[in-house]
């Protein structure tokens, strides 16, 4: 296989180094914009996390020491919220990448009505999260009037109260449905970029569909899967609308994730100080996940 990776280093080293101000000045606007864009909100969040700041109690101000941190870390819903955040991200990734790979291979085949079904599989991505959550809640999963309840009844099963008895599973279902199109699209592009001659060669060597998948397609998809995993993780860590519309974080704390917890602190308790601590915690967790992803998955991107 020819080495297609972009060669860095030597090319730039061959250029003469010139120490002028021009490059810095040219970079300055975008660097400044980026700094303002990311650093200002971060610093403000950190600042608020050490302040007494409750919208309902404007008289209570001042430095709060670690009070906000102690308050949030003592919250009985914090543990479940962190666990739910990871369960949600994990399960949606497994479902979308797993199903996405299968569907991508399916849509790579030639069959009647392929273009129509391709459009249909992509469609959920264009539905707003609040709208799709409402459709799932009131029209699909409702135990009285929902389509799923009708199907279950018609085969003799007793319809279940999805959001009551399996709340997190229901949220995973909705979010997976929304993100499957993204996985299918990305992975389909990757499957289609696979060299036809290599497939032909493998087939002539007697590779069946399974061997073809394991030894030819799957390694080829490595990069695309890594990209899908990274992009989805970034968005799935902050899932919110689907939870607000369907379960409101409950019953109990069973569907409260970190972003919902921050919402509860900021807009229900109107406690900006404690909500900012939640924000700081979310930043720490997101960076931890990012570090882990970069270490374990980014290797694929260089391969």
């Amino acid at each position: 296989m020819p080495d297609l990776s972009i060669t860095r280093g030597p090319v730039s080293r061959r250029l003469p180094r010139r120490h002028t101000l021009a490059p810095f000045l040219l970079q300055a606007p975008s660097v400044t914009a980026l700094l303002l864009w990311s650093i200002v909100p971060l610093v403000m969040t950190l600042w608020f996390s050490f302040r007494r700041y409750n919208l309902l109690e404007p008289s209570q101000t001042g430095f709060a020491h670690l009070e906000n941190y102690r308050y949030l870390l003592g919250d009985p819903s914090l543990g479940p919220a962190i666990l739910n955040t990871f369960l949600l991200v994990g399960w949606v990734l497994v479902i979308t990448v797993g199903l996405g790979t299968l569907l991508a291979i399916l849509y790579d085949q030639d069959f009647f009505g392929r273009s129509v079904t391709r459009v249909m599989v992509v469609a959920p991505f264009f539905v707003m999260p609040t709208v799709s959550a409402l459709i799932w809640k009131d029209m699909l999963l409702d135990p009285e009037n929902g389509v799923v309840a009708f199907l279950m009844r018609s085969v003799g099963l007793k319809p279940i109260n999805w959001f009551g008895t399996a709340p997190l599973t229901s949220i995973v279902l909705i979010v997976s449905w929304q993100w499957l199109p993204f996985a299918v699209l990305t992975l389909l592009t990757a499957v289609q970029s696979l060299d036809q001659e290599r497939k032909e060669a493998a087939r002539m060597d007697g590779a069946g569909p399974l061997a073809m998948f394991i030894y030819i397609i799957r390694p080829h998809l490595g990069r695309a899967i890594a990209a899908v995993t990274m992009v989805e993780t970034i968005f799935l860590l902050t899932v919110f609308a689907e939870i607000l519309v369907t379960t409101g974080g409950g019953p109990g704390y069973s569907t409260t994730n970190l972003s919902y917890l921050v919402y509860r602190y900021a807009l229900l308790e109107t406690d900006i100080g404690a909500a900012s601590v939640g924000g700081v915690l979310a930043i720490l967790l997101a960076n931890l996940v990012a570090l882990f992803l970069m270490r374990s998955i980014a290797k694929n991107l260089d391969a």
Binding site: G164, T165, G248, G249, G250, P251, G252, Y253, S254, R264
Partner: peptide, 16 residues
């Protein structure tokens, strides 16, 4: 009220 209501919902669904 909202938090306690959400917790009681967990008792109604039998989760707790």
């Amino acid at each position: 009220g909202t938090q306690v209501g959400q917790l009681i919902a967990a008792a109604v669904t039998g989760l707790e």
